[in-house]
Write a protein that binds this DNA or RNA. Structure first.
Lengths: 247, 247
DNA sequence: CGCATAATTGATGGTTATCAAGACCAGTGG
DNA sequence: CCACTGGTCTTGATAACCATCAATTATGCG
């Protein structure tokens, strides 16, 4: 059989377990369809019927909710290899709005594709389950940041979270990340205004924690930053010991 | 066979789907062991090895994380019938600390009990999955509240969330809920100080939104409150249409 | 009644929002 | 080559909101 182009989903999940041939095929089947989106395009909107999930093939996106008066909260930033839509799976309409932050390519697949996975592959089921709930742990960290951290700490936390996520699928990432978000978007992600994001990033830069060039950010003292916010990497290690054996 | 005492887990899940006899038995088996805890007892601590989950049989508990300097964030309040521990399932150590807010009774069960469920009951798997990810949707709402709401709105949101959750397992709940949390704990749940919680609750009371008597809170204008924070009930409706048929 | 815990009150200050203006930059068309 | 444009970032002044601290009052319990 022909091997299709490398799937970032398979690549990312392989980081955690040795996928069986069956699992691999099932994952590939999720990426059969492709759709292309321009910058700041809306993929779906809160309240839309949602019978689909999405695999990110290329580009950054984010999910947000807003209040009637326009205040906005970005609740999750999505990267290539991510599966989008787990939090909405329990509802018949979407709870968030999904938007691209730059040109992006998505692979939609239907909820019922999960049904197949649940019936046939306990290994993949456990892995999906773990991924879904790990996102929850990450959201817990975000909640802690939003509730109890200063602006400076919030931004430090965001940067650490992003770089540790990007390292999963891009092993040779060093200390620099591309951040294709403007300061309104950064503010909406951490609960600050664009103005204060600007001021705080300048502070972090003056303190020697980061350096900025265009849309790239270099973390100069990652250890110190991690200590500052008591950061723990939820992405690298995952407990797969309880997984069913490939059957 | 003998029918054991009513399980609040079975009761709660029955709200969403007709459980097969197999599913029911598997759920019951999760509640075989019981452990009793006093007020403000610690069940497990962040960093502990975690090979277990818990079903809440009685009493309120909460999970929190803290920063090195003592700031604390309560990330989830647990009620009878809840399953505690999904967010930690992907890790080998607990990411949060679990504490009772009053006398409570828990039923611990091992992670590998889930393995059995994954292998034997696609229906229950889908339901567990839905429960786990619905918690995520609820946390998204909390994140929005923490990031973009005023103190008054945050507290309104908390009360609405709590009462709509309690209504699932207690159908004849009216407009009054018992809130066994002190104002430090309330503050840690919404990202405020105990002092400002006090002041803000007084404002809500003066505005006629709530009435307080002891540890009970009555929501006098629930509609208005819901509109104030653009609240949507994540607890009542759940999309089960995509679930595998009981096999 | 006396003690501990929890809630309230008031004074003050810090952090962040808000508003408005200006600087920078890349792309566009004259 | 240069003005023009829209988007983004920066800067400064002011104000709102909430934290902090400390003292007092209420509540519950042995």
């Amino acid at each position: 059989m022909t091997i299709p182009e490398k799937s970032c989903l398979v690549q990312k999940l392989s980081h955690y377990v040795d996928l069986t041939e069956l699992s691999r095929k099932q994952l590939m089947s999720l990426e059969e369809t492709e759709r292309e989106f321009g910058k700041h395009a809306e993929v779906y909107r809160s309240g839309d019927r949602n019978d689909r999930l999405y695999v990110v093939k290329r580009g950054w996106l984010y999910s947000y909710t807003d209040l009637p008066d326009g205040r906005r909260q970005i609740v999750k930033i999505h990267h290539p290899g991510d599966i989008i839509g787990f939090p909405d799976i329990a509802f018949d309409t979407a709870t968030t709005t999904l938007q691209t932050s730059e040109q992006a390519c998505l692979c939609p697949f239907s909820k019922s594709a999960l049904e197949l996975i649940f019936q046939r592959s306990p290994q993949l089921t456990a892995l999906m389950f773990s991924l879904a709930v790990r996102d929850q742990a990450i959201m817990i960290d975000a909640l802690r940041a939003m509730g109890r951290m200063s602006a400076r700490e919030k931004l430090a936390h965001l940067l650490l979270d992003l770089i540790s996520r990007l390292r999963i699928s891009n092993k040779n990432l060093t200390d620099t990340l591309r951040l294709p978000l403007n300061q309104f978007e950064i503010g909406d992600a951490v609960g600050l205004t664009n103005v204060y994001v600007s001021k705080t990033l300048i502070v972090l830069e003056r303190e020697g924690f980061i350096r900025r060039r265009g849309d790239e950010i270099q973390l100069l003292k990652e250890q110190a930053l991690a200590q500052l916010v008591d950061f723990s990497d939820r992405h690298h290690a995952m407990d797969t010991s309880w997984f069913p054996n490939a059957s």
